[in-house]
Amino acid sequence: MPIIETANLRKEYDKLVALDNLNLQVNEGEIFGLLGPNGAGKTTTLMTLTTLIKPTSGTAKVNGHDIVKNPSMVRKSIGIVFQDPSSDDILTGYENLKLHGMLYGMPVDLREERIKEVLNLVDLTDRKDERVKKYSGGMRRRLEIARGLMHRPKVLFLDEPTLGLDPQSRENIWQYIENLSGHGEMSIIITTHYMEEADRLCSRLAIIDRGKVVALDSPSNLKKIIGGEVVVLKIKNPVIDSFEKLDFVKNIELKNDLVYLTVLNAGANLQQILQVAGKVDSVEIHSPTLNDVFLHFTGREIREDSTEGGWGQRVMNLRSKK
């Protein structure tokens, strides 16, 4: 049974459609990623699943409870670490955790035990009696992760867990998250726009754009969708038409003066590509990354430039080829 299941989840703000009949399933025990550009609807999805905002239509089940009909049961099943700090900085780290334990109705002895446990987990035991005001960004995020874990939720939501953190803190937090999921009892939902983070942590991910799931699979399968290697050419005023005639070029994306070609046997065919390209400032060949997948599915620039074809059609083409 999936731990989260959405059914045509829709959220409209005035005329803006934030979630456009979103459908996805998250399996128990997995780390599931929501990947998408800013404003794609990731945070709205999280806020809806955590009952903080009500969907316009459609619904979802979290841990078997309906988010619209039974929000309080949903709230008992979940923990969340918000994108922006949501601890009270006039209180100490310990006091924030104590408050959390009280809000979740934990008996005193259990609460104290768990506070010790989670403080230890995020290495904040020494700093627990300092006011959160004095914490660094990374410490504060760690405190809030500890807080989200304290009542041992079935589902933990992490909204951009490493946004704005230095590489060292980011690495630490990734390790915490990996350790957490190691036991396989907790399902973790992460929103992120860091490809590296999604690639490293998530067993499956959904690429979300304009409130819709445009792709959903494991990172490695998503990369396979690209179906070839990626050749990036830097050209002034590139002309796409000429590349379309090459039959080994499976896909073309344009981003400013960079042309991203998905190419079969890129090494062998490079000569021909360069001939077609004309004057090229630089060339790069790499195996597909999530970045390429992301560009492939959401390719904003191309849509905004309204270059012929459009990304939607390309996705359709790609799917029919597959």
């Binding site: 008992k76 949501s86 809000l103």
Partner: peptide, 14 residues
């Protein structure tokens, strides 16, 4: 403003 309200509203209390 400091987003602490979210922490309170997402807790299982009315």
């Amino acid at each position: 403003k400091i987003d602490f309200l979210k922490e309170v509203l997402v807790a299982p209390i009315s």
